[in-house]
């Protein structure tokens, strides 16, 4: 069994990596960070979920960056091509690359965290720090909502197919089927929530007052030291960035 990271350690590592990448604003570092996130995702066996989710978020984002800064970058001097008011400039492309790689690194790092973290550990760790359990429950429900929705959608699709709905491979057929499944999905989720609410009430979930936790999440001193170091490093990176860009930031 792999040694488990305390969820706060994983969160700190993800947040520090994102902060340092942003502060450094150096595209080779961003690319390295993104590749490291992909490597870790593969090693943790979550690449199959991280990469499609990242593609959904990043593809439109990177395309829009490319169009916005690649074609319309007023500060650009080195014109590579021109169509009417649109100019492709080397500076514009460079800026789009900078911003695109940075965003990609941050998105990948946080997706890796959210898919790799043990949700029960996270909820338990949050409760241990005095965070209201309702917050932990909402967080856990949110992180487990997608699989729950997928299961429910699958059931509705099976019920509809069993009654003659033919779902073919094409995108249009799938979208058409999805449209038919949306209302039942929402109603089913509301129904589930209603019946669970009574049980949660009866089991004391809504009661005010202190709580204890059955699950114990190990937090070895080494991980605590790592978190401190990572936070210090991230702070230093931000400070360094501010200092480095201070004179340039003053309008002349």
């Amino acid at each position: 069994m792999k040694p488990r990271l305390h969820p706060f350690t994983a969160l700190t590592a993800a947040a520090s990596a994102a902060v340092v990448t942003t502060a450094a604003a150096y595209w080779p570092l961003s690319v390295a960070m993104a590749l490291a996130a992909v490597f870790l995702a593969v090693r943790r066996g979550v690449a199959g979920r991280v990469l499609p989710a990242a593609a959904v978020i990043l593809t439109p984002l990177c395309l829009s960056l490319l169009v916005l800064h690649g074609l319309f970058f007023p500060e650009g001097q080195t014109v590579l091509a021109r169509w009417g008011p649109a100019r492709v400039t080397a500076e514009g492309l460079g800026f789009a690359l900078e911003l695109g790689t940075r965003t990609t690194a941050c998105v990948l790092v946080f997706l890796l965290f959210s898919f790799a973290v043990s949700v029960p550990d996270l909820v338990s760790a949050l409760a241990g720090r005095g965070i209201p359990p309702q917050f932990g429950f909402v967080l856990a429900s949110t992180l487990t909502l997608l699989p729950a929705v997928a299961v429910r959608l699958d059931r509705i699709r099976q019920a509809q197919e069993t009654r003659g709905m033919v779902v073919r491979r094409g995108l249009l057929s799938r979208l058409g089927a999805l449209r038919l499944q949306m209302v039942p999905l929402v109603l089913a989720l509301i129904d589930d929530a209603g019946s669970r609410a009574q049980a949660l009430d009866a089991r004391g979930f809504g009661s005010p007052g202190p709580r204890t936790s059955y699950r114990e999440v190990a937090d070895p001193p080494g991980q605590r030291r790592f978190r401190t170091a990572a936070l210090l490093f991230a702070t230093a990176a931000v400070a360094g960035r501010i200092v480095a860009s201070w004179p340039a930031g003053v309008p002349s």
Binding site: P120, T144, A199
Partner: peptide, 12 residues
């Protein structure tokens, strides 16, 4: 419907 749905094991 009795279960919290956010606990990872039977014991929890």
């Amino acid at each position: 419907a009795m279960l919290s749905s956010v606990r990872a094991t039977v014991a929890e």
